[in-house]
Design a protein around this nucleic acid. Structure first.
Lengths: 358, 358
DNA sequence: ATTGACTGAGAAAACCTTTTCTCACTTGAC
DNA sequence: GTCAAGTGAGAAAAGGTTTTCTCAGTCAAT
């Protein structure tokens, strides 16, 4: 590769950019190129004020020609709007944060809003540092997101003077919180199993102290109708594997379907069934939760599962924080967004094409 | 939940914040509270200028008491430094981006730098929109990252007037690019297999058009010494599974070790071996690549694999873009960062404790 | 010819900091 | 008692933009 230092290169760049004058093109350049004052230039570009249509057009044309772009810092200083929001998350691995982030970005990019992503582990000091940095940079709002519905971020966001929206994490009093409707999602799963003809549905899931685990288990009991005990455990493939061992060692009738608390558990269960020579989906149907592509789509057979629509959740959180930033009224409270069933092959039933979204 | 609208709530907040005067506390408030001019206040807070030690202390104390925080927009307008950088990625799933992001953030948070995350799918228009938005916001620099070493992002960053650093994606002439040393990583893997006593090592990997696939295969040939053909395929568990079928259907001696191009392939291979009644690691050692925890740690047995140290890569990219932003000279070129072997159980050999980092 | 309304455009203030320049005052030396 | 040097602190400009205010000029109506 080349040996030259980068410093001189930058100088070259600066040179061929504005022909000697350092820095970016400002509205002053536009004004003088168009032969008007900066106030007129500003008004022309923003479609405000009064002026001859010809003048307005000329200014706009020239601005376009010389590649003028307004300095958002200067604009923000005056308007008190930075067109920037902060996304705070303690989900290091990004399983939940990334889809949420994608949704936020998707919803806000058209409004010219950019997103600061701040991954605070579970470190209160780090979290505070990031929040302070964001506030210093005059973010228009903050979205807090996490990996668990029933846990708070390790930082208090309740008395900031910018709006805060919570997504997939527990919010404060009088805040706006978006979360998935786990009850409805679980119902979707169990109803699907019933629809494909299953009657003896077992439920293998995560730790009972998770709120969403209890909600899903509640819906399971309600829909399945029987009093089959729920197998609580951890969120791992190993647990799914072990739970199947337990179930099949028990005397009496075996289940003909497994509703698993997440895709990893489902995957472990599928593996255990195969090891026992039980066919999925012919002998037993297995359904997961999360639609974590990397797990659900790669399992053999690919998992039918419940998608929490996190991207949509992010989209709505983004639009809401924007609304609050613009002073539009928003009703506080918890908003539950419906889940969606993704049919693949692990339950049998009709598979309407390739159901993998995005 | 409560029925009240959020609008009046915000007003309340604004009220108890500065006692009637809307908005944040500025240096004016500090100055008048301390009985000095704003210039003196500024100099006191920034440890510049000359003044009585007592004055400086008093200003600082009062600033702390009333909770003054300088407005980064105003500061940036003047200093032409926004303490903000942009991270551009086309890795929607975040497998590579998240660790890189974590490293960047980790390295820069102490310098007061925040990071805009922009996920451009592979959409040139979206990418341009995001780049423009970042430039408008006066980012001090941009880091481009991707999911493939030998592919460019769908946007030209070569003539920006802010520094650009490439991480885990192909850069332009005279740029700074950070990437993992796949050759060294592959050598690490094969040498480890040799060290645990394996001699007939096969290599199952991804598509040959990937640069990193060719590099790893090259190192494999070199270290393994023999002319065993490489099995090229795709990055999926299914391929790992199928490749084992192929290998074991072939006449002649079977391999006693598999070096897999990524963890997913390794996982598929382990599954296939188990189905054939071959024990891992007693009969065959399997090693992966990527150290994707979710795959590597959940496989039974957990995979020994190669970690590309993406977080460190991000850290260095962050520090480099910062250096460039501050005008410090940086030698252009491609920097290869060494990989690290993560020993779990799929190869046998000694397992020095729990080797999962972070 | 005078008024009134309207039009097009510029001057200046404001946003919040930092930095340079200036100035009044003190002190020590001759 | 004058001068030079040094000290502490404030005034003002700058950064790029938006917005309000002002003003000169035009035109139609009286």
């Amino acid at each position: 590769m080349v040996k030259a230092f980068l410093k001189p290169l930058q100088k070259e760049e600066a040179l061929n950019l504005t022909g000697g004058k350092r820095g970016r093109i400002t509205i002053h350049e536009v004004a003088s190129a168009a032969g008007v004052s900066i106030s007129t230039a500003s008004k022309a570009l923003n479609d405000t004020g009064r002026m001859a249509a010809e003048t307005r057009e000329r200014v706009k044309r020239i601005a376009g020609e010389i590649g003028y772009r307004p300095n958002a810092l200067a604009r923000g200083l005056l308007s008190k709007r930075s067109f920037t929001i902060g996304l705070l998350t303690n989900d290091t691995y990004g399983r939940f944060t990334l889809p949420v982030m994608a949704g936020i970005s998707d919803a806000l990019v058209d409004h010219g809003v950019s997103v600061f992503l701040c991954a605070i582990e579970d470190d209160p000091a780090l979290a505070q540092t990031h929040v302070d940095a964001m506030l210093d940079k005059q973010v228009d709002g903050i979205i807090a997101t996490g990996k668990r519905l029933d846990r708070r971020l390790p930082v208090d966001l309740s008395n900031l003077h910018v709006p805060v929206v919570y997504a997939f994490t527990e919010g404060t009093q009088n805040s706006v919180t978006f979360r998935s409707d786990d009850e409805q999602g679980a119902r979707l799963a169990v109803e699907w199993l019933a629809k494909v003809g299953r009657r003896r549905i077992a439920h293998i899931t995560g730790p009972e102290e998770f709120f969403s685990v209890r909600e899903r288990a509640g819906a399971y009991h309600e829909v399945a109708g029987h009093r089959e005990p729920v197998l609580y455990g951890v969120w791992s493939e190993n647990w799914g594997h072990d739970a199947v061992e337990q179930l099949w060692k028990r005397p009496g009738e075996k289940p003909d379907a497994l509703f698993c608390g997440n895709d990893q558990i489902a995957r472990g269960a599928v593996d255990a069934l195969r090891e026992r020579g039980i066919r999925v989906p012919q002998d037993v149907s297995v359904i997961g939760f999360d639609n974590w592509e990397i797990v659900a789509a790669q399992t053999r057979p690919p998992l039918t599962t419940v998608d929490m629509e996190l991207k949509e959740l992010g989209r709505q959180a983004g639009l809401t924080v924007l609304a609050l930033a613009e002073g539009r009224p928003v009703e506080p409270g918890v908003r539950k967004l419906p889940c969606r069933l993704v049919v693949r092959q692990s339950c049998g039933g009709k598979t309407p094409g390739n159901e993998t979204k995005e």
